[in-house]
Write a protein that binds this DNA or RNA. Structure first.
Lengths: 117, 117
DNA sequence: TTAGTATATTCGATTATTCGAAATTACTAA
DNA sequence: TTAGTAATTTCGAATAATCGAATATACTAA
């Protein structure tokens, strides 16, 4: 198999798919919100719900996505489930992004108008 | 309007939507590939097509997404269109991500198996 | 056991993304 | 003009993402 495409290219493509997957997980406002909430440490689902005002079922679904793609981990303690970020490096990505956003804020805002208009 | 939700929260939510939008744009392997191609400078669509083996129409659609969300810019020169990254900061995001990926490569690979299996 | 709280899963409808094929626009060179 | 290359747009079908409602599981306390 793979007589024409070199192994290297196949692996690079696989890596790109993986990257795309991670970005896609971050590609939803509610999931971004959840990740931001977890910035300073672990939280229970209830605590997350206090900040991220969505249906519990919906939050669970988003947490499930974050979990399945390895961005967050969870631990159970009695009645509750605590979530936390898998790797603080993710915060760095978000912080670099924050720089990007700050820089492009003005155009970002006018762009937002267009997005939902 | 917005009698109950403070302005600040509304703006934060707007910003999150914008961030999500950018991440979503990066949430496709072909678009990641295109951005990576543009890492070292501008390229014509043809040159991009040489590296990213997809239908021209498909590449155009992805470039259109990258353009409309402001991640790339283009200029026309005669018969051809040159694309380049809007802001090198984007590369930094990608580079931070690269660290993340390197760190999680092993699990990443087993995760990829699950994704397409 | 029963009732109550915390979280997760399943289901079905809606909306969004994605792709290739076909048609289109914009240039260039003969 | 005509033919040819570069890039884009439109269309329609297939697939994926999203949400709330309803249901289910797991734990706790009475």
């Amino acid at each position: 198999m793979n007589r024409e495409i070199p192994d290297d290219a196949v692996q690079k493509e696989a890596l790109r798919r993986f990257k795309a997957n991670v970005f896609q997980v971050l590609g939803h406002p509610t999931r971004i919100h959840i990740v931001e909430c977890l910035r300073d440490g672990e939280l229970t689902v209830s605590a997350i719900l206090d900040q991220v005002a969505v249906e519990p079922a919906n939050a669970s679904q988003h947490l499930s996505v974050l979990r399945s793609k390895g961005l967050v981990v969870n631990r159970k303690e009695g009645n509750q489930v605590f979530y936390s970020l898998r790797d603080p490096l993710l915060i760095e990505v978000l912080d670099t992004m924050k720089l990007y956003f700050k820089k492009h804020l003005e155009e970002a805002m006018s762009m937002l108008q267009g997005m939902e208009g």
